[in-house]
Design a protein around this nucleic acid. Sequence first.
DNA 1: GTGACCGCCTGACAAATGTCACGGCCGGAA
DNA 2: TTCCGGCCGTGACATTTGTCAGGCGGTCAC
Lengths: 206, 206
Amino acid sequence: MTEPIRLLLADDQALVRGALAALLSLEPDLTVVAEVSRGDEVVPEALRTGPDVALLDVEMPGLDGVAATAALRAALPSCRVLVVTTFGRPGYLRRAMEAGANGFVVKDTPARQLADAVRRVHAGLRVVDPALAAETLATGPSPLTERETEVLRTARGGGTVAELAATLHLSEGTVRNHLSAAIGKTGARNRADAVRVAEANGWLLG
Amino acid sequence: MTEPIRLLLADDQALVRGALAALLSLEPDLTVVAEVSRGDEVVPEALRTGPDVALLDVEMPGLDGVAATAALRAALPSCRVLVVTTFGRPGYLRRAMEAGANGFVVKDTPARQLADAVRRVHAGLRVVDPALAAETLATGPSPLTERETEVLRTARGGGTVAELAATLHLSEGTVRNHLSAAIGKTGARNRADAVRVAEANGWLLG
DNA sequence: GTGACCGCCTGACAAATGTCACGGCCGGAA
DNA sequence: TTCCGGCCGTGACATTTGTCAGGCGGTCAC
């Protein structure tokens, strides 16, 4: 038998991380060589342990999974990346693929399929949930401009326009205008609704 | 050796559910006899398989984990309940304990401790993260009245006051007043902020 | 070059939101 | 009983929010 596939696991929830390790260790051709809980630990640990495939969660402290994907692909091109995420948000898939991910799996998929996804990614194939891929293509890229995204992202905290304007160094009128544009583009009724829609589509990463 | 502890797993994310099953099956004295993905499947499946301990996630479709706890304790009192949740929200812990849960574990805890938690719960002990327990006591119960909670819960969708008033069969002024009270009690600046705070504390379950 | 277009920025105005003071209702304390 | 306090419901008022028309600067096609 050939050498087993060496895996790095990155997930901020220790219980999930450990459980995934147990699940994947059941496969004789897979071995977990590293586990980290933060996005900014991915590259150092990968350089130290030299995994063949990295399983990265999107929601992580320090550095989100998409940014970690880009950093890891740059630092260790031989290591494939399989993004594993809770939320099947179109924007996440798009951004992850643009960042160089080789596969994208949501945590709803049956456990038995995970090992196969790892093997396919390791073999150089792309792994993507077909339904999510279709939704991503249908949704299209984010219609929001950079400033609109930034304003909406800041508005998540629930502050008033005056506060947003202060932190962004803009006039209140400008902030209101960006918010209005975002509301229109997302088809929302509200600032709060616009935040919800944009977040659900994965347009507020970062 | 005595009979192994029989487990029921309830989590809406198939991958996490399967991974937890793999993790717990490594222990010789534990055996997973049932897995469900929805809260409303917990009681029927438990009645069919007769587990000793049920591991329930809080966030589930059909019936949330707290309601499932209450239903399970009523339908099968011999089965202990260990609630396993992503978010360490004070309100969740309080509500779960009031519903009759025997233990409460967040998904941040190390994987090795999960099996011990199961054994302790099975032995009749209570298992609670001390830090979360302290935070729960410090935070206290929800300061929101029933109506305020209901209005705030409905306001999550991001609708306008007129819509809220229509769905709740109230006057617009009344809705505004409840929202204002909720904003004051949560220390928020905004309706949106109040929703965030209440949700973070686990005050909007249901 | 120049015109069309797009994103960014801003102030004025209408519409919504949040605050306040008030009255009715119910349950417990004096 | 009567009083008190909490919750619910409501309308009037000030504040905040969302919309609109418009000015400025850059880029691309022609």
